[in-house]
Computed example of a mutant assay.
Amino acid sequence: MATTPTRLSRQARREQLLDTAGTIVRTRGADGLTLVTLAEEAGVSRPIAYDHFATRPGLLLALHRRLDERHRAGITRALRDAAPSAGAVARVISAAYFACAADMPELSAVSAALKGSPEMEAVQHELTEGYAELMATALLPYSSLAPQALRLRCVGLLGAAEAIAAELNRERATDGEAVTALTDLILGGLDARADR
């Protein structure tokens, strides 16, 4: 018995398409994601996929933003449940950063597919800024630094986290070692006396 496709609202259709796009990237890699494969996998016409995303980079950027929002929501929840101490907050931030790579491998695949894209450079800057603000806000009660100085250190810590993640991906560190290293770096960056 053939089923009639359900008519979805524009937002619901976009969510369905992004769900499908995430599945494609997870199973075939970012190279397997095109507007045509998306339409086929989602069971919609090509014009629907093009209407929502216009271009492949537009689709990849939308998927990247969605995955980042999920990651940020997860870290926000984890921070809400963290014990009120510098060590606990630093560990939650570190664990959430590296869990993202394990829980959402498609995020790094999409990022890699967008390398060199001017739109992606702007999005990366925006996302890094947002993540640094999230970190700085969570760490501010435990720091002797002025808010702007702490935010700048958080930007630097994100660069360190990326370098540690590369070591993790090369299997030159374990998950536990990566979390501990980033936690220690975060805790070392909270004190204004480190400015000497």
Rank of each mutant, 00 (worst) to 15 (best):
residue 114 L to S: 06
residue 68 D to Q: 13
residue 64 H to C: 02
residue 51 D to S: 14
residue 76 T to W: 00
residue 112 A to W: 15
residue 45 S to G: 14
residue 62 A to I: 00
residue 78 A to C: 06
residue 106 E to I: 06
residue 13 R to N: 04
residue 120 M to W: 12
residue 50 Y to K: 10
residue 56 R to H: 11
residue 99 A to I: 00
residue 83 A to Y: 06
residue 95 A to V: 09
residue 40 E to A: 14
residue 86 A to C: 07
residue 110 V to G: 08
residue 22 G to Y: 11
residue 47 P to G: 05
residue 62 A to P: 02
residue 66 R to T: 03
residue 86 A to M: 08
residue 50 Y to C: 09
residue 36 V to W: 06
residue 58 G to E: 09
residue 21 A to F: 03
residue 58 G to L: 07
residue 26 R to L: 11
residue 115 K to Y: 04
residue 53 F to I: 02
residue 83 A to H: 10
residue 23 T to H: 09
residue 31 D to H: 11
residue 107 L to H: 15
residue 117 S to C: 10
residue 60 L to D: 12
residue 87 G to I: 01
residue 70 R to M: 15
residue 58 G to A: 07
residue 8 L to R: 15
residue 14 R to V: 01
residue 18 L to P: 00
residue 64 H to Y: 13
residue 10 R to G: 10
residue 32 G to R: 09
residue 50 Y to D: 11
residue 10 R to D: 10
residue 98 F to R: 07
residue 109 A to N: 01
residue 104 M to A: 07
residue 10 R to I: 14
residue 115 K to A: 15
residue 118 P to Q: 13
residue 14 R to T: 00
residue 34 T to M: 14
residue 117 S to H: 07
residue 99 A to G: 14
residue 63 L to G: 10
residue 38 L to T: 00
residue 32 G to V: 03
residue 31 D to M: 05
residue 35 L to Y: 03
residue 114 L to E: 05
residue 48 I to G: 01
residue 73 A to N: 11
residue 106 E to S: 10
residue 28 R to F: 02
residue 113 A to S: 10
residue 68 D to K: 11
residue 6 T to L: 12
residue 46 R to C: 07
residue 48 I to Q: 12
residue 69 E to Q: 13
residue 47 P to V: 08
residue 20 T to K: 08
residue 13 R to Q: 13
residue 4 T to Y: 07
residue 92 V to K: 05
residue 17 L to H: 02
residue 17 L to S: 02
residue 68 D to H: 15
residue 98 F to I: 03
residue 12 A to Y: 06
residue 111 S to Y: 08
residue 70 R to T: 02
residue 109 A to R: 12
residue 42 A to P: 01
residue 108 S to N: 05
residue 24 I to E: 04
residue 96 A to R: 14
residue 20 T to N: 01
residue 19 D to M: 06
residue 32 G to L: 07
residue 37 T to D: 00
residue 68 D to P: 00
residue 46 R to V: 14
residue 93 I to R: 08
residue 88 A to S: 14
residue 69 E to D: 15
residue 87 G to R: 12
residue 106 E to F: 00
residue 104 M to Y: 14
residue 95 A to P: 03
residue 83 A to I: 04
residue 11 Q to S: 14
residue 21 A to M: 06
residue 5 P to L: 15
residue 99 A to K: 02
residue 45 S to L: 04
residue 48 I to F: 00
residue 60 L to V: 08
residue 4 T to N: 10
residue 8 L to M: 12
residue 97 Y to K: 07
residue 119 E to M: 14
residue 3 T to M: 13
residue 117 S to D: 11
residue 24 I to Q: 01
